[in-house]
Nucleic acid binder design. Structure first.
Lengths: 233, 233
DNA sequence: ACAGTATTTATCCAACGGGTTAATTTCGGC
DNA sequence: GCCGAAATTAACCCGTTGGATAAATACTGT
Protein backbone atom coordinates (compact mmCIF):
# COMPACT_ATOMS: atom_id res chain seq x y z
CA UNK A 1 0.00 0.00 0.00
CA UNK A 2 1.58 3.25 -1.16
CA UNK A 3 2.44 5.40 1.79
CA UNK A 4 1.98 9.15 1.70
CA UNK A 5 5.22 10.78 0.79
CA UNK A 6 6.30 13.10 3.50
CA UNK A 7 9.48 14.62 2.29
CA UNK A 8 9.32 17.62 4.51
CA UNK A 9 5.81 18.08 5.71
CA UNK A 10 3.51 16.96 2.95
CA UNK A 11 2.95 17.38 -0.77
CA UNK A 12 -0.14 17.98 -2.79
CA UNK A 13 -1.26 15.17 -5.04
CA UNK A 14 -5.01 15.16 -5.45
CA UNK A 15 -5.19 12.62 -8.29
CA UNK A 16 -2.75 10.25 -6.67
CA UNK A 17 -4.50 10.61 -3.36
CA UNK A 18 -7.82 9.81 -4.94
CA UNK A 19 -6.44 6.72 -6.61
CA UNK A 20 -4.80 5.50 -3.42
CA UNK A 21 -8.04 6.02 -1.54
CA UNK A 22 -10.04 4.06 -4.10
CA UNK A 23 -7.53 1.23 -4.21
CA UNK A 24 -7.43 1.00 -0.44
CA UNK A 25 -11.20 1.12 -0.31
CA UNK A 26 -11.47 -1.67 -2.85
CA UNK A 27 -9.28 -3.93 -0.76
CA UNK A 28 -11.11 -3.02 2.41
CA UNK A 29 -14.61 -3.53 1.03
CA UNK A 30 -13.55 -6.76 -0.62
CA UNK A 31 -12.02 -8.05 2.58
CA UNK A 32 -14.75 -7.04 5.01
CA UNK A 33 -17.87 -6.20 3.05
CA UNK A 34 -19.69 -2.90 3.23
CA UNK A 35 -20.72 -3.08 6.86
CA UNK A 36 -17.45 -4.60 8.02
CA UNK A 37 -15.25 -2.10 6.24
CA UNK A 38 -13.67 0.58 8.40
CA UNK A 39 -13.20 4.09 7.14
CA UNK A 40 -10.19 4.58 9.37
CA UNK A 41 -8.49 1.53 7.98
CA UNK A 42 -9.08 2.74 4.44
CA UNK A 43 -7.56 6.07 5.28
CA UNK A 44 -4.59 4.46 6.98
CA UNK A 45 -4.00 2.06 4.10
CA UNK A 46 -4.18 4.92 1.64
CA UNK A 47 -1.65 6.85 3.65
CA UNK A 48 -4.23 9.54 4.08
CA UNK A 49 -6.14 11.36 6.72
CA UNK A 50 -9.70 10.19 7.18
CA UNK A 51 -10.95 13.59 6.23
CA UNK A 52 -9.56 13.05 2.75
CA UNK A 53 -12.07 10.36 1.96
CA UNK A 54 -14.88 12.77 2.51
CA UNK A 55 -13.08 15.55 0.71
CA UNK A 56 -12.21 13.59 -2.42
CA UNK A 57 -15.01 11.06 -2.71
CA UNK A 58 -17.79 11.39 -0.22
CA UNK A 59 -19.15 9.26 2.56
CA UNK A 60 -18.69 5.56 3.01
CA UNK A 61 -21.47 4.56 0.64
CA UNK A 62 -20.33 6.93 -2.07
CA UNK A 63 -16.90 5.43 -1.73
CA UNK A 64 -18.30 1.96 -1.97
CA UNK A 65 -20.32 2.75 -5.07
CA UNK A 66 -17.33 4.31 -6.77
CA UNK A 67 -15.29 1.20 -6.03
CA UNK A 68 -18.04 -1.01 -7.40
CA UNK A 69 -18.34 1.04 -10.56
CA UNK A 70 -14.60 0.91 -11.01
CA UNK A 71 -14.66 -2.86 -10.70
CA UNK A 72 -17.30 -3.19 -13.38
CA UNK A 73 -15.49 -0.76 -15.63
CA UNK A 74 -12.33 -2.78 -15.34
CA UNK A 75 -13.82 -6.12 -16.28
CA UNK A 76 -15.82 -4.61 -19.11
CA UNK A 77 -12.68 -3.03 -20.49
CA UNK A 78 -10.87 -6.36 -20.49
CA UNK A 79 -13.85 -8.15 -21.97
CA UNK A 80 -13.78 -5.82 -24.91
CA UNK A 81 -10.22 -6.76 -25.79
CA UNK A 82 -11.30 -10.37 -26.30
CA UNK A 83 -12.48 -10.75 -29.82
CA UNK A 84 -14.08 -14.08 -30.24
CA UNK A 85 -15.35 -13.21 -33.70
CA UNK A 86 -12.59 -14.71 -35.74
CA UNK A 87 -12.17 -17.89 -33.71
CA UNK A 88 -13.61 -21.28 -34.35
CA UNK A 89 -16.84 -21.46 -32.33
CA UNK A 90 -15.54 -24.17 -29.96
CA UNK A 91 -12.28 -22.29 -29.52
CA UNK A 92 -14.20 -19.10 -28.89
CA UNK A 93 -16.17 -20.69 -26.09
CA UNK A 94 -13.04 -22.21 -24.64
CA UNK A 95 -11.36 -18.86 -24.74
CA UNK A 96 -14.31 -17.22 -23.05
CA UNK A 97 -14.24 -19.73 -20.23
CA UNK A 98 -10.52 -19.38 -19.91
CA UNK A 99 -10.73 -15.62 -19.74
CA UNK A 100 -13.54 -15.63 -17.19
CA UNK A 101 -11.71 -18.09 -14.98
CA UNK A 102 -8.45 -16.21 -15.07
CA UNK A 103 -10.04 -12.85 -14.61
CA UNK A 104 -11.71 -14.06 -11.45
CA UNK A 105 -8.46 -15.60 -10.29
CA UNK A 106 -6.55 -12.40 -10.92
CA UNK A 107 -9.23 -10.20 -9.34
CA UNK A 108 -10.59 -11.89 -6.26
CA UNK A 109 -11.85 -8.54 -4.94
CA UNK A 110 -14.27 -8.42 -7.82
CA UNK A 111 -15.96 -11.58 -6.61
CA UNK A 112 -16.17 -10.29 -3.07
CA UNK A 113 -17.59 -6.97 -4.20
CA UNK A 114 -20.30 -8.68 -6.22
CA UNK A 115 -21.25 -10.76 -3.22
CA UNK A 116 -21.40 -7.69 -1.06
CA UNK A 117 -23.57 -5.92 -3.57
CA UNK A 118 -25.90 -8.87 -3.80
CA UNK A 119 -26.22 -8.95 -0.05
CA UNK A 120 -27.46 -5.38 -0.44
CA UNK A 121 -29.86 -6.64 -3.12
CA UNK A 122 -28.07 -4.52 -5.72
CA UNK A 123 -29.35 -1.39 -4.06
CA UNK A 124 -26.36 0.68 -5.11
CA UNK A 125 -26.06 -0.80 -8.57
CA UNK A 126 -29.66 0.12 -9.29
CA UNK A 127 -28.87 3.73 -8.53
CA UNK A 128 -25.76 3.75 -10.70
CA UNK A 129 -26.47 5.14 -14.14
CA UNK A 130 -22.84 4.55 -14.97
CA UNK A 131 -22.96 0.78 -14.57
CA UNK A 132 -26.32 0.37 -16.21
CA UNK A 133 -25.01 1.94 -19.39
CA UNK A 134 -22.02 -0.41 -19.48
CA UNK A 135 -23.68 -3.52 -20.79
CA UNK A 136 -21.50 -6.51 -21.19
CA UNK A 137 -20.50 -7.13 -24.77
CA UNK A 138 -20.45 -10.82 -23.93
CA UNK A 139 -24.06 -11.54 -24.51
CA UNK A 140 -23.96 -10.39 -28.12
CA UNK A 141 -20.56 -11.99 -28.61
CA UNK A 142 -21.91 -15.28 -27.36
CA UNK A 143 -25.03 -15.03 -29.42
CA UNK A 144 -23.08 -14.71 -32.63
CA UNK A 145 -20.64 -17.44 -31.64
CA UNK A 146 -23.50 -19.81 -30.91
CA UNK A 147 -25.23 -18.96 -34.14
CA UNK A 148 -22.04 -19.49 -36.10
CA UNK A 149 -21.44 -22.75 -34.29
CA UNK A 150 -24.87 -24.06 -35.11
CA UNK A 151 -24.57 -23.04 -38.74
CA UNK A 152 -21.15 -24.63 -39.12
CA UNK A 153 -22.35 -27.80 -37.46
CA UNK A 154 -19.84 -27.49 -34.63
CA UNK A 155 -22.65 -27.07 -32.13
CA UNK A 156 -25.59 -29.38 -32.13
CA UNK A 157 -28.00 -26.93 -30.60
CA UNK A 158 -28.76 -23.29 -29.97
CA UNK A 159 -28.60 -21.96 -26.43
CA UNK A 160 -29.85 -18.76 -24.90
CA UNK A 161 -26.65 -16.69 -24.67
CA UNK A 162 -27.68 -15.22 -21.32
CA UNK A 163 -28.10 -18.69 -19.84
CA UNK A 164 -24.79 -19.77 -21.25
CA UNK A 165 -23.03 -16.70 -19.94
CA UNK A 166 -24.46 -17.16 -16.47
CA UNK A 167 -23.49 -20.81 -16.56
CA UNK A 168 -19.91 -20.13 -17.52
CA UNK A 169 -19.59 -17.37 -14.96
CA UNK A 170 -21.27 -19.53 -12.35
CA UNK A 171 -18.98 -22.50 -12.88
CA UNK A 172 -16.00 -20.29 -12.22
CA UNK A 173 -17.48 -17.89 -9.70
CA UNK A 174 -18.88 -20.41 -7.28
CA UNK A 175 -15.72 -22.45 -7.20
CA UNK A 176 -13.55 -19.44 -6.44
CA UNK A 177 -15.88 -17.38 -4.32
CA UNK A 178 -16.71 -20.36 -2.13
CA UNK A 179 -13.30 -21.97 -2.18
CA UNK A 180 -12.80 -21.35 1.53
CA UNK A 181 -15.86 -23.27 2.70
CA UNK A 182 -15.61 -25.88 -0.03
CA UNK A 183 -11.99 -26.56 0.84
CA UNK A 184 -13.01 -27.24 4.43
CA UNK A 185 -15.94 -29.42 3.45
CA UNK A 186 -14.03 -31.50 0.94
CA UNK A 187 -10.84 -31.49 2.95
CA UNK A 188 -8.66 -30.43 0.07
CA UNK A 189 -7.13 -27.16 -1.00
CA UNK A 190 -9.09 -26.04 -4.03
CA UNK A 191 -6.79 -23.12 -4.73
CA UNK A 192 -3.53 -24.94 -5.23
CA UNK A 193 -2.14 -25.00 -8.72
CA UNK A 194 -3.13 -28.54 -9.68
CA UNK A 195 -6.65 -28.07 -8.39
CA UNK A 196 -7.06 -24.85 -10.33
CA UNK A 197 -5.80 -26.40 -13.54
CA UNK A 198 -8.09 -29.34 -13.08
CA UNK A 199 -11.04 -27.06 -12.56
CA UNK A 200 -10.42 -25.04 -15.70
CA UNK A 201 -10.09 -28.24 -17.68
CA UNK A 202 -13.32 -29.59 -16.23
CA UNK A 203 -15.30 -26.44 -17.00
CA UNK A 204 -14.16 -26.29 -20.60
CA UNK A 205 -14.82 -29.97 -21.10
CA UNK A 206 -18.27 -29.76 -19.55
CA UNK A 207 -19.47 -26.85 -21.61
CA UNK A 208 -17.93 -27.94 -24.86
CA UNK A 209 -19.17 -31.48 -24.48
CA UNK A 210 -22.68 -30.14 -23.98
CA UNK A 211 -22.46 -27.85 -26.98
CA UNK A 212 -20.59 -29.99 -29.46
CA UNK A 213 -21.59 -33.44 -28.32
CA UNK A 214 -17.96 -34.53 -28.45
CA UNK A 215 -16.03 -35.56 -25.37
CA UNK A 216 -12.86 -33.71 -24.58
CA UNK A 217 -9.82 -34.06 -22.40
CA UNK A 218 -11.15 -33.90 -18.85
CA UNK A 219 -13.88 -36.34 -19.65
CA UNK A 220 -11.61 -39.03 -20.97
CA UNK A 221 -8.64 -38.55 -18.72
CA UNK A 222 -6.20 -36.74 -20.94
CA UNK A 223 -3.45 -34.49 -19.56
CA UNK A 224 -4.37 -30.97 -18.64
CA UNK A 225 -4.98 -28.38 -21.31
CA UNK A 226 -2.64 -25.46 -21.54
CA UNK A 227 -4.15 -22.24 -20.34
CA UNK A 228 -5.16 -20.17 -23.32
CA UNK A 229 -4.90 -16.90 -21.53
CA UNK A 230 -2.21 -14.42 -22.31
CA UNK A 231 -1.81 -11.08 -20.58
CA UNK A 232 -4.65 -8.76 -21.31
CA UNK A 233 -4.43 -5.03 -20.59
CA UNK B 1 -41.74 -13.66 13.88
CA UNK B 2 -43.14 -15.33 16.98
CA UNK B 3 -43.66 -12.79 19.70
CA UNK B 4 -42.92 -13.60 23.33
CA UNK B 5 -46.06 -14.69 25.01
CA UNK B 6 -46.88 -12.44 27.93
CA UNK B 7 -50.01 -13.84 29.41
CA UNK B 8 -49.59 -12.36 32.82
CA UNK B 9 -46.04 -11.34 33.30
CA UNK B 10 -43.94 -13.88 31.48
CA UNK B 11 -43.54 -17.59 31.07
CA UNK B 12 -40.53 -19.80 30.98
CA UNK B 13 -39.79 -21.45 27.66
CA UNK B 14 -36.09 -22.00 27.28
CA UNK B 15 -36.25 -24.32 24.27
CA UNK B 16 -38.75 -22.13 22.45
CA UNK B 17 -36.76 -19.05 23.27
CA UNK B 18 -33.59 -20.62 21.97
CA UNK B 19 -35.27 -21.62 18.74
CA UNK B 20 -36.76 -18.19 18.26
CA UNK B 21 -33.39 -16.61 18.85
CA UNK B 22 -31.67 -18.88 16.35
CA UNK B 23 -34.35 -18.34 13.74
CA UNK B 24 -34.20 -14.59 14.17
CA UNK B 25 -30.42 -14.70 14.07
CA UNK B 26 -30.49 -16.71 10.87
CA UNK B 27 -32.66 -14.13 9.16
CA UNK B 28 -30.57 -11.28 10.47
CA UNK B 29 -27.20 -12.74 9.50
CA UNK B 30 -28.56 -13.73 6.11
CA UNK B 31 -29.94 -10.28 5.51
CA UNK B 32 -27.00 -8.20 6.71
CA UNK B 33 -23.97 -10.45 7.00
CA UNK B 34 -21.95 -10.96 10.14
CA UNK B 35 -20.69 -7.41 10.54
CA UNK B 36 -23.96 -5.83 9.47
CA UNK B 37 -26.14 -7.91 11.76
CA UNK B 38 -27.42 -6.18 14.88
CA UNK B 39 -27.77 -8.01 18.15
CA UNK B 40 -30.63 -5.77 19.23
CA UNK B 41 -32.58 -6.49 16.08
CA UNK B 42 -32.16 -10.21 16.62
CA UNK B 43 -33.44 -9.90 20.16
CA UNK B 44 -36.39 -7.80 19.07
CA UNK B 45 -37.29 -10.16 16.24
CA UNK B 46 -37.08 -13.11 18.61
CA UNK B 47 -39.37 -11.35 21.05
CA UNK B 48 -36.61 -11.60 23.59
CA UNK B 49 -34.50 -9.44 25.79
CA UNK B 50 -31.03 -8.95 24.43
CA UNK B 51 -29.61 -10.57 27.51
CA UNK B 52 -31.21 -13.84 26.42
CA UNK B 53 -28.89 -14.18 23.48
CA UNK B 54 -25.91 -14.23 25.75
CA UNK B 55 -27.65 -16.43 28.27
CA UNK B 56 -28.81 -19.09 25.83
CA UNK B 57 -26.20 -19.04 23.13
CA UNK B 58 -23.26 -16.78 23.73
CA UNK B 59 -21.85 -13.73 22.06
CA UNK B 60 -22.48 -12.60 18.51
CA UNK B 61 -19.92 -14.89 16.93
CA UNK B 62 -21.10 -17.93 18.87
CA UNK B 63 -24.59 -17.14 17.69
CA UNK B 64 -23.40 -16.84 14.14
CA UNK B 65 -21.56 -20.14 14.25
CA UNK B 66 -24.56 -21.92 15.68
CA UNK B 67 -26.72 -20.53 12.90
CA UNK B 68 -24.20 -21.64 10.31
CA UNK B 69 -24.01 -25.11 11.77
CA UNK B 70 -27.78 -25.34 11.82
CA UNK B 71 -27.91 -24.36 8.18
CA UNK B 72 -25.49 -27.11 7.22
CA UNK B 73 -27.33 -29.64 9.35
CA UNK B 74 -30.57 -28.80 7.64
CA UNK B 75 -29.33 -29.23 4.10
CA UNK B 76 -27.44 -32.41 4.98
CA UNK B 77 -30.60 -33.85 6.52
CA UNK B 78 -32.59 -33.16 3.37
CA UNK B 79 -29.84 -34.47 1.16
CA UNK B 80 -29.97 -37.79 2.95
CA UNK B 81 -33.64 -38.27 2.12
CA UNK B 82 -32.81 -38.23 -1.59
CA UNK B 83 -31.84 -41.69 -2.65
CA UNK B 84 -30.49 -41.63 -6.11
CA UNK B 85 -29.36 -45.22 -5.92
CA UNK B 86 -32.32 -46.86 -7.58
CA UNK B 87 -32.80 -44.30 -10.30
CA UNK B 88 -31.61 -44.42 -13.86
CA UNK B 89 -28.27 -42.57 -13.93
CA UNK B 90 -29.54 -39.68 -16.07
CA UNK B 91 -32.66 -39.40 -13.92
CA UNK B 92 -30.51 -39.45 -10.81
CA UNK B 93 -28.44 -36.53 -12.04
CA UNK B 94 -31.56 -34.67 -13.09
CA UNK B 95 -33.05 -35.25 -9.70
CA UNK B 96 -29.91 -34.04 -7.98
CA UNK B 97 -29.93 -30.82 -9.99
CA UNK B 98 -33.60 -30.36 -9.33
CA UNK B 99 -33.16 -30.86 -5.62
CA UNK B 100 -30.20 -28.50 -5.40
CA UNK B 101 -32.01 -25.81 -7.32
CA UNK B 102 -35.16 -26.02 -5.28
CA UNK B 103 -33.35 -26.24 -1.99
CA UNK B 104 -31.54 -23.02 -2.80
CA UNK B 105 -34.78 -21.43 -3.89
CA UNK B 106 -36.55 -22.45 -0.72
CA UNK B 107 -33.65 -21.46 1.53
CA UNK B 108 -32.17 -18.22 0.31
CA UNK B 109 -30.65 -17.58 3.73
CA UNK B 110 -28.42 -20.56 3.20
CA UNK B 111 -26.84 -18.91 0.19
CA UNK B 112 -26.30 -15.67 2.05
CA UNK B 113 -24.78 -17.44 5.03
CA UNK B 114 -22.32 -19.27 2.82
CA UNK B 115 -21.28 -16.03 1.21
CA UNK B 116 -20.81 -14.43 4.58
CA UNK B 117 -18.72 -17.33 5.75
CA UNK B 118 -16.58 -17.18 2.66
CA UNK B 119 -16.03 -13.50 3.19
CA UNK B 120 -14.60 -14.57 6.55
CA UNK B 121 -12.46 -17.10 4.71
CA UNK B 122 -14.30 -19.93 6.48
CA UNK B 123 -12.72 -18.91 9.76
CA UNK B 124 -15.66 -20.14 11.82
CA UNK B 125 -16.27 -23.26 9.80
CA UNK B 126 -12.69 -24.32 10.34
CA UNK B 127 -13.24 -24.19 14.08
CA UNK B 128 -16.47 -26.15 13.90
CA UNK B 129 -15.91 -29.83 14.60
CA UNK B 130 -19.63 -30.32 14.13
CA UNK B 131 -19.74 -29.23 10.51
CA UNK B 132 -16.52 -30.97 9.57
CA UNK B 133 -17.97 -34.29 10.63
CA UNK B 134 -21.12 -33.79 8.52
CA UNK B 135 -19.89 -34.65 5.06
CA UNK B 136 -22.34 -34.41 2.23
CA UNK B 137 -23.55 -37.79 1.01
CA UNK B 138 -23.63 -36.36 -2.47
CA UNK B 139 -20.05 -36.96 -3.43
CA UNK B 140 -20.28 -40.69 -2.88
CA UNK B 141 -23.77 -40.76 -4.36
CA UNK B 142 -22.50 -39.04 -7.47
CA UNK B 143 -19.51 -41.32 -7.70
CA UNK B 144 -21.67 -44.44 -7.81
CA UNK B 145 -24.19 -42.85 -10.16
CA UNK B 146 -21.43 -41.87 -12.57
CA UNK B 147 -19.88 -45.32 -12.39
CA UNK B 148 -23.23 -46.97 -13.04
CA UNK B 149 -23.92 -44.55 -15.87
CA UNK B 150 -20.65 -45.32 -17.55
CA UNK B 151 -21.13 -49.07 -17.17
CA UNK B 152 -24.66 -48.96 -18.53
CA UNK B 153 -23.54 -46.82 -21.43
CA UNK B 154 -25.83 -43.95 -20.46
CA UNK B 155 -22.80 -41.74 -19.82
CA UNK B 156 -20.00 -41.51 -22.28
CA UNK B 157 -17.36 -40.56 -19.78
CA UNK B 158 -16.36 -40.62 -16.13
CA UNK B 159 -16.17 -37.35 -14.23
CA UNK B 160 -14.65 -36.47 -10.90
CA UNK B 161 -17.69 -36.41 -8.59
CA UNK B 162 -16.36 -33.43 -6.66
CA UNK B 163 -16.02 -31.40 -9.82
CA UNK B 164 -19.48 -32.41 -10.93
CA UNK B 165 -20.98 -31.57 -7.56
CA UNK B 166 -19.34 -28.16 -7.51
CA UNK B 167 -20.51 -27.55 -11.06
CA UNK B 168 -24.10 -28.40 -10.31
CA UNK B 169 -24.11 -26.35 -7.14
CA UNK B 170 -22.37 -23.51 -8.94
CA UNK B 171 -24.85 -23.39 -11.80
CA UNK B 172 -27.67 -22.95 -9.32
CA UNK B 173 -25.88 -20.97 -6.62
CA UNK B 174 -24.47 -18.23 -8.79
CA UNK B 175 -27.73 -17.61 -10.59
CA UNK B 176 -29.67 -17.26 -7.35
CA UNK B 177 -27.08 -15.67 -5.12
CA UNK B 178 -26.27 -13.04 -7.73
CA UNK B 179 -29.76 -12.63 -9.11
CA UNK B 180 -29.97 -9.07 -7.86
CA UNK B 181 -26.96 -7.76 -9.75
CA UNK B 182 -27.54 -9.99 -12.76
CA UNK B 183 -31.12 -8.81 -13.03
CA UNK B 184 -29.90 -5.22 -13.17
CA UNK B 185 -27.16 -5.99 -15.69
CA UNK B 186 -29.36 -7.98 -18.03
CA UNK B 187 -32.41 -5.83 -17.48
CA UNK B 188 -34.72 -8.71 -16.76
CA UNK B 189 -36.13 -10.24 -13.61
CA UNK B 190 -34.32 -13.51 -13.14
CA UNK B 191 -36.50 -14.57 -10.24
CA UNK B 192 -39.88 -14.56 -11.90
CA UNK B 193 -41.52 -17.90 -12.46
CA UNK B 194 -40.78 -18.30 -16.15
CA UNK B 195 -37.16 -17.32 -15.71
CA UNK B 196 -36.70 -19.81 -12.89
CA UNK B 197 -38.26 -22.62 -14.87
CA UNK B 198 -36.12 -21.79 -17.83
CA UNK B 199 -33.01 -21.84 -15.69
CA UNK B 200 -33.73 -25.25 -14.21
CA UNK B 201 -34.37 -26.62 -17.65
CA UNK B 202 -31.14 -25.14 -18.94
CA UNK B 203 -29.03 -26.55 -16.11
CA UNK B 204 -30.39 -30.04 -16.49
CA UNK B 205 -30.00 -29.94 -20.24
CA UNK B 206 -26.44 -28.65 -20.01
CA UNK B 207 -25.21 -31.25 -17.58
CA UNK B 208 -27.04 -34.18 -19.10
CA UNK B 209 -25.98 -33.25 -22.59
CA UNK B 210 -22.38 -33.19 -21.43
CA UNK B 211 -22.68 -36.54 -19.68
CA UNK B 212 -24.82 -38.49 -22.08
CA UNK B 213 -23.96 -36.82 -25.35
CA UNK B 214 -27.62 -36.53 -26.18
CA UNK B 215 -29.40 -33.22 -26.55
CA UNK B 216 -32.39 -32.60 -24.35
CA UNK B 217 -35.32 -30.23 -24.11
CA UNK B 218 -33.72 -26.84 -23.44
CA UNK B 219 -31.21 -27.34 -26.18
CA UNK B 220 -33.74 -28.07 -28.86
CA UNK B 221 -36.52 -25.76 -27.77
CA UNK B 222 -38.98 -28.16 -26.20
CA UNK B 223 -41.51 -27.06 -23.56
CA UNK B 224 -40.31 -26.79 -19.99
CA UNK B 225 -39.74 -29.89 -17.94
CA UNK B 226 -41.91 -30.47 -14.94
CA UNK B 227 -40.13 -29.92 -11.68
CA UNK B 228 -39.22 -33.24 -10.19
CA UNK B 229 -39.15 -32.00 -6.67
CA UNK B 230 -41.72 -33.02 -4.15
CA UNK B 231 -41.82 -31.89 -0.53
CA UNK B 232 -38.91 -33.20 1.48
CA UNK B 233 -38.86 -33.09 5.29
C1' DA C 1 -44.74 -23.94 51.78
C1' DC C 2 -40.28 -22.85 50.67
C1' DA C 3 -35.58 -22.97 49.20
C1' DG C 4 -32.80 -22.86 45.46
C1' DT C 5 -32.06 -22.54 40.74
C1' DA C 6 -33.30 -21.35 36.02
C1' DT C 7 -35.02 -17.91 33.26
C1' DT C 8 -36.13 -13.22 32.12
C1' DT C 9 -36.22 -8.10 32.64
C1' DA C 10 -34.47 -3.51 33.24
C1' DT C 11 -30.42 -0.49 32.97
C1' DC C 12 -26.03 0.81 32.18
C1' DC C 13 -21.49 1.68 29.90
C1' DA C 14 -17.24 1.91 27.56
C1' DA C 15 -15.50 1.49 23.07
C1' DC C 16 -16.15 2.09 18.46
C1' DG C 17 -16.97 4.34 14.18
C1' DG C 18 -18.79 7.48 10.81
C1' DG C 19 -18.82 11.98 10.09
C1' DT C 20 -17.79 17.05 11.08
C1' DT C 21 -15.41 21.42 12.41
C1' DA C 22 -11.79 24.23 12.24
C1' DA C 23 -7.15 25.28 11.85
C1' DT C 24 -2.87 24.64 8.97
C1' DT C 25 -0.01 24.23 4.95
C1' DT C 26 1.02 24.02 -0.02
C1' DC C 27 1.22 26.12 -4.38
C1' DG C 28 -0.25 28.35 -8.82
C1' DG C 29 -1.26 32.85 -10.62
C1' DC C 30 -0.38 37.65 -10.64
C1' DG D 1 6.87 37.99 -2.91
C1' DC D 2 2.17 37.37 -1.77
C1' DC D 3 -2.76 36.27 -1.99
C1' DG D 4 -6.36 33.02 -2.15
C1' DA D 5 -8.05 28.71 -3.27
C1' DA D 6 -7.01 23.85 -2.94
C1' DA D 7 -5.33 20.19 -0.21
C1' DT D 8 -4.26 18.21 4.11
C1' DT D 9 -4.00 17.65 9.16
C1' DA D 10 -5.51 17.38 13.90
C1' DA D 11 -9.06 17.08 17.13
C1' DC D 12 -13.49 16.30 18.43
C1' DC D 13 -18.54 14.99 18.40
C1' DC D 14 -22.10 11.95 19.35
C1' DG D 15 -25.20 8.18 18.16
C1' DT D 16 -24.61 3.24 17.96
C1' DT D 17 -23.53 -1.29 19.54
C1' DG D 18 -21.81 -5.31 21.73
C1' DG D 19 -21.61 -6.73 26.01
C1' DA D 20 -22.07 -6.60 31.30
C1' DT D 21 -24.37 -6.04 35.99
C1' DA D 22 -27.78 -6.69 38.99
C1' DA D 23 -32.34 -7.28 40.31
C1' DA D 24 -36.79 -9.57 39.65
C1' DT D 25 -39.76 -13.37 38.67
C1' DA D 26 -41.13 -18.22 37.60
C1' DC D 27 -40.64 -22.89 38.20
C1' DT D 28 -38.92 -27.57 40.45
C1' DG D 29 -38.16 -30.73 43.83
C1' DT D 30 -38.80 -31.74 48.50
Amino acid sequence: MAKAKRILKWQRDPEGMRLRILEAAKQEFAAYGLAGARVDRIAAAAGANKRMLYYHVGNKEDLYLEVLEGAYEKIRAEERTLDLEHLDPPDAIGRLIDFTWNYFLRNPEFLALLNTENLAKAKHLKRSTKVKSMHSPFVEMIRTVVTRGVESGDFRVAVDPVQLYISIAGLAFFYLSNSATLSVIFGRDLLKKEARDERLEHMIALVLAALTGKSTAAFVGMPALQSLEHRVV
